[in-house]
Design a protein around this nucleic acid. Structure first.
Length: 369
DNA sequence: TCTGGGGTCCTAGGACCC
DNA sequence: TCTGGGGTCCTAGGACCC
């Protein structure tokens, strides 16, 4: 979580800070370049997030420090991206090593934690809340029984850890002791949900406007599903109040819809939104955030079959055509008729400071004279 | 005035089954 | 008055991650 810009206006003005809002097309492309380079260098690896990858070094009896510095230099040379590398015996300790690599100027971007004496020292100097798997709430709970450092966290009894933070917390504690509890690739084989939601620049108190927004989200969600080659059997619409305005009525309303047969067709999802908007709408609401959640995902060929309503459509030429048009002319090149194209809708997010798509759009490629 | 989006996992509790 | 034992499934809520 960042700090809201309006809270630091002064700072920005005083120091001529350059403001950039996020551009995921750019980040995704840079990420892909770095990850591909790394994956080609090592026998086994698992991408964890857009800017993190875990590497298995079990069967590489080499000087890890030297090897990591070589890799770091190569990534910088070939992509221009500086990275930090942390090495240890478990994923949780490797994350800690990485943190130190980033923080300590002496480390120059690489830290190997393989000596118990150094591990003890590192844990002692790290707050429990800075350990991977310990969030704000758990950190508070731990502090209430006197556990504030990562070393105390490692040395706490299993039963206490389990009771306070359930099995996930216990795994974290054991990983700090050097016992592997999290495999290299613990990511689930297939996505379980797809969500598209937005906060609105201006609160919505008009049913038709909310409907238009939700239909747009439904279209985006379907497009995501198609990219993943998945269909959804259920979806959930939801609206939320502004949680920062505590003096006003707080609400969270939603409804769940069944899609039979399972689908990723934008038209069907849009129709469903239109037909069910009244189930969540009320005239006295000011809606700050809304979204659609796609649930019970499966591959089209595995979708449940229904005796009366027919099977899930395996091939959908119209949707394929829309995807191709969007790929070529940009998102929202094609929309369903329910959404007005005449103007930028009031609720649309403003991204006035967005970075250009330096590497994925011809118009945005930097020019060197 | 302005306050992010998208995920997973775990547990408790209720409803149901034999 | 007495009132079993062993399950599954679903949902809401709360925690975590980037």
């Amino acid at each position: 979580m960042g700090q809201p810009l309006f809270q630091i206006r002064d700072l920005v003005r005083r120091h001529n800070v350059i403001v950039k809002s996020s551009n995921y097309a750019l980040y995704g492309d840079i990420s892909r370049r770095v990850m591909t380079l790394i994956a080609n260098e090592v026998p086994d690896s698992a991408i964890y997030s857009i800017d993190e990858i875990f590497i298995d070094l079990d069967n590489t009896p080499i000087d890890h420090d030297l090897w990591a510095r070589d890799l770091k230099a190569k990534i910088l040379r070939e992509t221009g991206i500086p990275v930090g590398i942390g090495i240890s015996t478990t994923k949780t300790l490797a994350k800690l090593a990485n943190r130190l690599a980033k923080k300590s100027p002496k480390a120059k971007g690489v830290v190997v934690l393989d000596d118990q004496k150094w591990i003890d020292l590192a844990l002692e100097r790290t707050e429990a809340g800075d350990i991977w798997g310990v969030g704000r709430k758990f950190a508070l709970k731990l502090a209430s029984i006197g556990v504030t450092t990562a070393r105390q966290l490692r040395d706490m009894p299993d039963t206490t850890a389990r009771k306070m933070m359930t099995v996930g917390g216990l795994k974290t504690v054991r990983e700090l002791r050097g016992i592997r509890c999290i495999n290299l690739d613990d990511s689930p084989p297939q996505r379980e949900t797809v969500c598209v939601s937005r906060s609105f620049g201006k609160e919505i108190d008009d049913r038709e406007m909310l409907k238009e927004a939700l239909i747009t989200f439904a279209g985006r969600a379907c497009s995501k599903l198609r990219r993943l080659n998945l269909v959804a059997c259920r979806c959930q619409l939801f609206i939320l109040s502004n949680r920062f305005k505590m003096d006003r009525q707080q609400f969270s309303r939603g409804c769940e819809l069944t899609m039979t047969p399972a689908t990723n067709d934008t038209r069907i999802a849009s129709n469903l939104v239109g037909q069910n908007i009244n189930r969540i709408w009320r005239n006295d609401l000011a809606v700050k955030k809304a979204g659609i959640l796609m649930l019970d995902l499966c591959r089209p060929e595995d979708a449940p079959r229904d005796l009366f309503t027919g099977h899930c459509q395996l091939d959908n030429p119209l949707m394929k055509a829309i995807d191709q048009l969007e790929g070529r002319f940009g998102k929202d090149a094609v929309t369903v008729g329910r959404v007005s194209r005449s103007k930028v809708p009031d609720w649309f997010m403003t991204s006035t400071n967005r970075s250009p798509c330096y590497t994925t759009r011809w118009q945005d490629i930097p020019i060197v004279w």
